[in-house]
């Protein structure tokens, strides 16, 4: 079996001379959950659409389940689940009709899974799709996608506009299906605390370029924060790209650094070897680390590694 069901190889897409996605490569190992992160306009949706074969790459290649996304066979397509941004469903259908409509396309459609998700989101089968709340709409979309028992699940910002309860249901569904069926999941999101909960790895894009592709654990180990207390003159730090954030306060400076891959946990990165100052490690959350990393200007890639599943 192919052990990276989702992969991109130098994937590039230009729109009117502007590179929306530029030379992006990554691979998601079978059965893992990867989050696609990046600010608005970073190229997340464009990347996902190329993966699904909905958009032709200008250069490079996307592959799903061992086939190039450009020409996925209908058989392979039937093994892929996709939830588009904002949930593309027909508003005029009733919930029941929407389910029947989807069922007609998929011989493997599992009514039990569909019902379980529909019930979890408390959907009324007689309601019109157009009258559903954001969360219910996402629930219905999730139900009809998961019921097809996809081997690969691609979700474009599925948590957008969901209330906390619906968000939790979405996470539960992701954990459940990645465990039960070893579904390989790639989803885009802005909710970093949820990423920490459910994702094995992250793919981070910025202005179309790949900025990081690694496990959540690696990212946490590599991005660290330090406090440097000072009196009078603030310490002068070397002009290094690995220092991704500096904040000066009255008596201390907070510095966020990307450490080289081999730096052991308690060890100070060499860029912070300051003879005249004490440097104190501070705990940092995944969310703060990701924000510091994303907020950094420039297209420097620090944390990209080969996925070894």
């Amino acid at each position: 079996m192919n052990d990276t069901p989702i992969s991109a190889h130098g994937l590039t897409r230009a729109f009117y001379g502007h590179l929306a996605v530029s030379n992006v490569s990554f691979a998601v190992p079978r059965g893992q959950v990867f989050a696609l992160l990046g600010r608005n306009g970073a190229g997340k949706t464009t990347t996902l659409r190329m993966l699904l074969g909905l958009l032709e790459p200008t250069a490079g290649e996307a592959r799903l389940l061992g086939q190039t996304s450009r020409d996925l066979s209908p058989e392979t397509r039937a093994r892929i689940g996709f939830m588009a941004e904002g949930c593309a469903l027909y508003d005029w259908m009733r919930v029941k009709e929407c389910i029947a409509f989807q069922r007609a396309f998929y011989p493997r459609f599992d009514d039990e899974t569909c019902r379980a998700v529909v019930d979890a989101f408390r959907l009324n089968e007689r309601q019109r799709v157009g009258e559903l709340s954001h969360g219910q709409r996402a629930g219905l979309n999730l139900a009809v996608v998961l019921a097809t028992e996809p081997e690969v699940l691609i979700l474009d910002d599925p948590a957008m506009g969901l209330d906390p309860v619906a968000r939790r249901l979405l996470l539960e569904a992701m954990v459940h299906f990645s465990q039960r069926d070893h579904t390989t999941i790639l989803y885009s999101t802005h909710l970093l605390a949820d990423v920490e909960r459910v994702a094995d790895g992250i793919i981070l894009l910025e202005r179309g370029a790949l900025r990081a592709c690694c496990t959540v654990d690696t990212f946490r180990q590599r991005v660290r924060r330090y406090a440097i207390p000072f009196e009078g003159e603030p310490p002068s730090l070397p002009d290094e790209a690995t220092i991704i954030a500096k904040k000066r306060f009255e008596q201390e400076m907070l510095v966020t650094v990307v450490t080289p891959a081999a730096t052991p946990e308690g060890e100070l990165p060499s860029v912070l070897a300051l003879p005249d100052h004490e440097v104190e490690p501070l705990p940092i959350s995944f969310e703060d680390a990701a924000i510091a990393y994303l907020g950094h200007r420039g297209e420097v890639r620090f944390v990209v590694e080969r996925n070894d599943a």
Partner: peptide, 17 residues
């Protein structure tokens, strides 16, 4: 691992770790 992952709604690999 599965049960605790489902209960806490976290990635099972985190519990396994």
């Amino acid at each position: 691992v599965r049960a605790l992952a489902a209960q806490l709604v976290v990635n099972p690999n985190t519990i396994a770790k």
